[in-house]
Amino acid sequence: MIEIDKISKTYDGVTAVDEVSMVVDTATITVIVGTSGSGKTTLLRMINRLVEPSSGEVRINGEATHTVAKTSLRRRIGYAIQGHGLFPHYTVARNIGTVPTLLDWSQEKIDTRVDELLDLFSMQPDKFRDRYPAELSGGQQQRVGVARALASRPDLLLMDEPFGALDPIIRAHAQKDLRHIQRTLGSTIMLVTHDMEEAIQLGDRVAVMDAGRLVQYGTPAEIIQQPATEFVAKMAGGVERPLRLLSLYPVSDIIEEGTAEGEPLDANTCLRDALSICLWSGRDVLPVVNEGVPAGRVTLAAIRARAEGPT
């Protein structure tokens, strides 16, 4: 559990982060979202003390971060940034092994860990271990960047716009991978982005920052349905809010008994895609299958009901 307690940062009298408090649960993804200059990156960098807070404190599993030496604190916290920041003169293996080396792991243990991580990110160790960053594609570099951040099994992983430099298709793929890896490893992740779509897709909880203050902190559904301020409502997508909301739920949530004509849907499809298929194929009801077995149907009316905002 990460507790951020009334943390502030002022630069020459200008407040970048203003008394932010929040609690992050273990094994969840928390996304901090905001426009540029909202203080989101400063907030993240205060957690591993790349920026020293002006006041307030951060506690990780009850231990205040300012009581630990900066470098040993950072070695316990993974850190991945936009454009990956890989060391151009290190091979993939040495890049991933950076923190374990700083922690004096044995070479054998480091090698095992590197291969394990490469496997996890679906990069064959034999093929990629000895390559240099310049010999990788953008998506591969980004994966190595995240693998490097995870290498020492950190208590917490901080990510600053980790997918910012990727094109949309690779980006979607990387987001899915991250979600999968987080579920597998049970990692605690705090991620900064300016993209609300990404925040809603990835976050268990979303924290919205505006002008240095935390304006709302809640589940993606709460952010969309009950925006605390005009600003959050605008960030949450304005007229696109119903569609964003639908993207949060799978078809299985509103499945009902019965049958329908036409190509069936998988139960894990999100409601937004189900709506799309209804509209495109001109059907009001779609059959649903779960792992290939017919499981019932979903109606356009039921989808509509889930998309309605608070009245």
Binding site: K70, T71, S72, R74, Y79, I81, G83, G85, P88, R148
Partner: peptide, 18 residues
Amino acid sequence: TPEKARDAARGMGMTTWQ
């Protein structure tokens, strides 16, 4: 040294000397 690599190095807990 690229600024990103320097930031990553600090973020991973390298000392100034390292």
